[in-house]
């Protein structure tokens, strides 16, 4: 057994003990909203040990998140602001912003993400609009048809598209264009789903009302349909824009190594260059960009993000 196995066992034991402790300690807590006493109060030790109120169920998950999500993020923060000897330093950030190639890299990532998002909206919006106007059952089947490739491993899908572009003789010729095509191919379903679900849920009587009041087709679309579908556009854009910036698998597959994304830069610091402090600093910069994007778009709806894949 290695350390990790032992540590896992320890975590499991501690968790079980913690749950048992809380269950025992709070056994007299009420369960109902009306202040009724719990029914397990007087039913033997075994019962009492395993009795719990429902909200205590979030403790194991909370501990898991604290250990494997929140704490690791603090490790990134710590590494970003220290140097190899462990002293606090801002050198990593200074290095990033004083190297012309990394600045180019950052802007290239933003450009790729922006263009990909725009192209995805331009393709997915009319598509989702047409599908949402069809008979519900047929529209649903067609939506499934458009998002089904999502079920195929994305590296294999990228490989397929790469072979096709190779057949056209584009590979190595148009690195930027190929990268955009690859990104759009990968992320298009994530734009179609939220747009379709927004458009299909839309109250159609509003459009009819606009038409009754004398608005033409274009005017109805611009003044009614489009504004009402903005939430779908935003959540789709979030699902495309943020992952695109760091999705170096696609840019490496299609860009011939000539389209460096910020994600690739981070990976290099960790795997090849072995400068984890610098890599952490770049990760922090990426987190800041993500944070700004979310502020600009007004946060995110947790129901829509990638979970849309479960349609």
């Amino acid at each position: 057994m290695d350390y990790l196995t032992i540590a896992l066992l320890v975590v499991v034991i501690v968790l079980t003990a913690a749950i048992a402790f809380f269950a025992f300690r709070y056994r007299k807590r009420t369960y109902g909203k009306d202040g009724r006493e719990g029914v397990t109060t007087d039913k033997g030790l075994k019962r009492r040990l395993f009795a719990f109120s429902r909200k205590q169920l979030c403790i194991p998950y909370g501990v898991f998140l604290a250990l494997f999500v929140v704490f690791p993020l603090f490790l990134i923060l710590y590494n970003a602001f220290t140097d190899r000897s462990g002293h606090i330093s801002f050198d990593n950030f200074i290095l990033f912003f004083s190297t012309p190639s990394t600045i180019t890299n950052l802007f290239m990532s933003l450009l790729i993400a922006f263009v990909t998002t725009a192209v995805c909206i331009l393709i997915a919006y009319p598509l989702a609009y047409i599908l949402s106007r069809m008979k519900a059952s047929r529209g649903y089947i067609l939506v499934m048809l458009f998002v089904m490739p999502m079920w195929i491993n994305f590296v294999l899908r990228a490989m397929a598209l790469r072979e096709l572009l190779d057949l056209f003789g584009w590979l190595g010729e148009y690195n930027f264009l190929n990268t955009i095509i690859g990104m759009v191919y990968d992320f298009l379903p994530f734009m179609i789903l939220p747009l379709y679900s927004t458009l299909i849920k839309m109250d159609r009587s509003l459009e009819e009302a606009a038409a009754d009041l004398g608005a033409g087709r274009t005017r109805t679309f611009v003044k009614v349909t489009l504004p009402l579908s903005v939430p779908g556009i935003i959540s789709g854009a979030m699902m495309v824009f943020l992952p695109t910036m760091s999705c170096y698998v696609i840019s490496e597959t299609f860009g011939g190594g000539k389209i460096p994304l910020i994600g690739k830069l981070i990976e290099e610091q960790f795997l090849a260059a072995d400068n984890w402090h610098y890599g952490s600093a770049i990760a922090i910069i990426m987190l800041i960009i993500m944070f700004i994007t979310m502020l600009v778009t007004g946060g995110f709806k947790s129901e829509n993000v990638r979970g849309g894949a479960s349609l």
């Binding site: 494997f68 999500v69 690791p72 993020l73 490790l75 990134i76 590494n79 979030m238 943020l242 992952p243 910036m245 760091s246 170096y248 994600g263 981070i266 990976e267 960790f270 984890w276 890599g279 952490s280 990760a283 990426m286 987190l287 993500m290 979310m294 995110f300 947790s302 993000v305 990638r306 979970g307």
Partner: peptide, 14 residues
């Protein structure tokens, strides 16, 4: 859910 996979990966490596 919103974090970039590369950041999750790096944080776990750390």
């Amino acid at each position: 859910v919103i974090n970039a996979e590369i950041v999750i990966g790096v944080s776990l490596a750390l």
